[in-house]
Amino acid sequence: MTTVAADVKKLTMIQAITDAMRTMLDEDDSVLVLGQDVGINGGVFRATEGLLNEFGEDRVIDTPLAESGIVGTSVGLAVNGFKPIAEMQFFGFIYPAFNQLMTHATRMRQRSLGRYTVPMVIRAPYGAGVKAPEIHSDSVEALFTHIPGLKVVTPSNGYDAKGLLIASIEDPDPVLFIEPMRCYRTGRTEVPAEKYTIELGKAKTVREGDDVTVLTWGAMVNDTMKAVEQWEKEHQATCDVIDLRTLYPLDRDTIKTSVEKTGRVVIVHEAPETGGVSGDILSVINDEALFYLKAPVQKVTGFDTPVPVYSLENEYLPSARKITWAIEEALHY
C-alpha cells in the first residue's frame, strides 16, 4: 500500500473535478455552478456531488432543460459580475448553445472594447468508449477551437483536472473544459487538497523518448501510453508522448522542441480526421519545425463519420494496434 500524505488524496478524475469546483465555490462568492441535475442529483456523473448541501441553492443551480438557455443565462450572469461554471450534460448536447458561444460569450470582450468580459467555464463530458447512446460520445473539440476567443482545455487525469479546472475558472475569458468521460473513474492520481493551478496553454510530456513524438490528449493519452509502453518493450526505440492538455491555444514551444529532437511525429485523436485539431498541429509543425521532419506526420484518428452507436465504438476509436502501426510507419519511412 502506498502511503499518501494527509494533504494529498488519491482521487479519481471526477472527484478531482468536484474538488476543484468546491475549492473555487469556497474561495470566491461570485463562482456559481449551474446545469441540468447539478443540484440534489449531484450531476449525472456526480461531478457536483455534495456541492448543493455545502453551498446551497443560491450557488448550485438546477436549471431548466435548455442548453442555449443555460449558456445564455451564464453569459448574462458573467457580464453582471459572476463566474458561472455551466455543465453540459454531455458534449454532444452543446449544439443548441453553439450560438451563444459563437456570437456572444467569445465576442463580448472585443465587442465592448473591454467594458464586459465573460469569465465563464463550460464543462462537458466527452468521448466514446462508455457504451452511451447516440450523440453522447462526440469529440467535436475542433468545432470550438475554431471559435476565436474560446480556450479549449481537456485533462487526462485527476491531478491535471483539478489544476486545469481551477485555472479555467480563474481565467478572465470563456473556457470550454471538456472531460474525457472514459477517464472519470479509470484511475486515481495523487491530488493535493490545497488549491493549485496548471497554466492553460501548456502541454505536458508524459513519457520521454528520442525517436518518435506522439501528440495526443484526453482519453487517448492513457491508450497511447499503454500502446507505447508495450511497443517499447519489443523495440529498440523510444517515444516522447505529449499530452497537449490545452487545444486552444496550442503549446507551440513544446511541440517544436520535441519535433526538433525526434523528427518523426504521430498525432492521435478520437475526433474525425477532417478538420480535426491534428490539422492545426500540422500547421504548427509546418511553421516551426518543417525541416526537422524525417518522415511524413502520421495521424491516428476517428473516421470521417459520426461516432457510431456503441456496438461499433471500439472499432471507431484509435486502438493500440493502430497507434503502434503509425509509430512504425513514422519510424521506418
Binding site: G76, T103, H104
Partner: peptide, 24 residues
Amino acid sequence: LSPQIIIGAQITQAAGVGLGLKKR
C-alpha cells in the same frame, strides 16, 4: 449591452442578468 444582432440571443442573457441582480 450593445444592440443585439442575432435575433433573440439577448433574451436568455437578460434572464441571467436579472438572476444576478436578484442574487445580489
